[in-house]
Amino acid sequence: MGHDHDHSHDDVPHYVLELEDSADSREDIPCPVCDSWRWVPLYEGVGLRGNKLKLVACSNCSHFFITPRPTLEVFERFYADDSYFHLCADFSEVSLEDKMAQFEDDAFWKKRFEHGQRLYENHLSDVLGPDDLVFDFGCGDGAWLGGLQQASGCAIDGEEISPIYAEVIRRKFGVDIFVGPAEGLIDDIVEKHRAKAKVVIVSGSLQHMLDPMRCLRAAREMLTQDGRLYICNWSIFDHFMASYGGAARRLVGEIVSWEHLHYFHELAFKYMVERAGFEILSYAPESIVRPMHMEIVAKKTTADAPAPDPEEVAAVIHRVRAFESATIADRLRIR
């Protein structure tokens, strides 16, 4: 089957082409947060990577997600080679060679450790000690873990979807983390760390997951009774679509892509955490720990999460459509 792209196939991750060619590679889904099939389309067309996709909003809880989504098998194939790592290098605006070389630079690690150190100073200084364990879902190069270990002396472990990053962590910290998509590893992770982790981090990685709720529920099982969950992610309104740091406002079609399956905002972000079995201790729309992210610190609870107010859900859906219309109008005025 052919592709009616206006760009070279070399510019498109191979799993995007695979998704477009094979109905067996994707599956329609209910809302990953609340399981409702009541969703409305926000955007359908060509996305950031030249990929054809559909972004929808849940009419029940207001979560934004892509459907159909890739299957776990396709996800595993994409992240098993260096396609994702090339995207990471492109995002950092460096060559793949320079990105690899920075892992040998002490100044790079000193700067990267600051995330974990700020997390400790702002949220964990009275929680985390040398006898405790920190687990990081989607730990990347492991710098958050390294910063927390340096600050507190804690033990560290994590999960990372990229084998290249996992090898960096093994060399730098001497830890063999779990490698692969979280959904395929969660049972083993929970079995190893059930009720043993003082802190679980999910920093900027929930949007990459097929099933973010499964990750958060696993985090709850892993935490000690007095443990803490720390999550942070971009807000679709404040960090993706809005003008930020001098950048122009962007349309939905300019931000959505297959490797980012979920797009968060305050209402659904909070509800997701509460529905997973947590009490939110603090929320910040602009994190001090990781700039340009909203963040939540939470602890385990047995209380039920109240469903979002239908009027608030409707307002969120109206907001993204109004934002889109205003951005288009601004561009037309400039022309």
Rank of each mutant, 00 (worst) to 15 (best):
H318P: 00
P291I: 02
P163N: 07
P310I: 05
D98E: 15
R217A: 11
L332Q: 07
C31Y: 04
S152I: 03
R171S: 15
C31V: 10
H63F: 15
P163E: 08
Y271G: 02
I231S: 02
A80G: 08
N60D: 14
L145R: 07
V200K: 06
L223H: 00
T302R: 11
G153I: 08
D10P: 00
R331E: 12
A80V: 07
Q117K: 15
H3T: 01
D106T: 04
V256N: 05
Y15F: 11
A182D: 06
G227Y: 04
A322K: 05
P306V: 08
I156T: 12
F278L: 13
E121F: 08
V199Q: 01
D81N: 13
F264R: 02
C34D: 13
T327W: 02
R335C: 09
M292Y: 04
L133T: 12
I161H: 02
P308T: 14
A182L: 14
A284Q: 12
D98G: 03
A247I: 09
L185A: 11
V127T: 10
Q225N: 05
F108M: 07
I334F: 03
E183H: 11
Y43K: 03
H208Q: 09
D28R: 06
G246F: 09
L229Q: 10
L42F: 01
A143I: 02
Y244P: 02
I201L: 15
T327E: 03
V12P: 04
I296V: 13
V74K: 07
H14R: 03
E20G: 04
L332H: 05
L229E: 09
D188K: 05
D226I: 01
W39N: 07
A89E: 06
D90V: 00
I189W: 01
K198D: 03
R319A: 12
P130H: 00
K52V: 11
R331I: 11
I288T: 02
G140H: 11
G227M: 09
A182K: 01
V320S: 06
E311N: 08
S325Y: 02
K270N: 08
F237I: 04
A247L: 04
I66T: 15
E121L: 04
G146W: 14
H262G: 09
E274T: 09
P30M: 13
F240H: 13
G147C: 15
V16H: 00
G50N: 13
E311D: 15
E97H: 07
R249K: 09
E18A: 15
L185G: 03
D330C: 06
D132S: 11
L133I: 07
A298F: 07
H5P: 03
A143N: 11
G227L: 05
N233I: 06
A315Q: 07
N122L: 11
C232Y: 00
C154D: 09
D24S: 12
P68F: 11
G184P: 00
D11Q: 01
G158R: 05
F91L: 12
V56L: 10
D4I: 02
H239I: 04
E159K: 00
H5L: 06
A329Q: 05
V40S: 14
S287R: 06
V297I: 15
L267I: 08
G142Q: 13
R335A: 12
A182W: 00
Y244W: 14
L87S: 10
P285F: 01
E93L: 14
P212W: 05
L148A: 15
G246H: 07
G246C: 13
E259T: 12
D4T: 00
Q225Y: 10
P130D: 14
R331L: 15
V289W: 00
R77T: 11
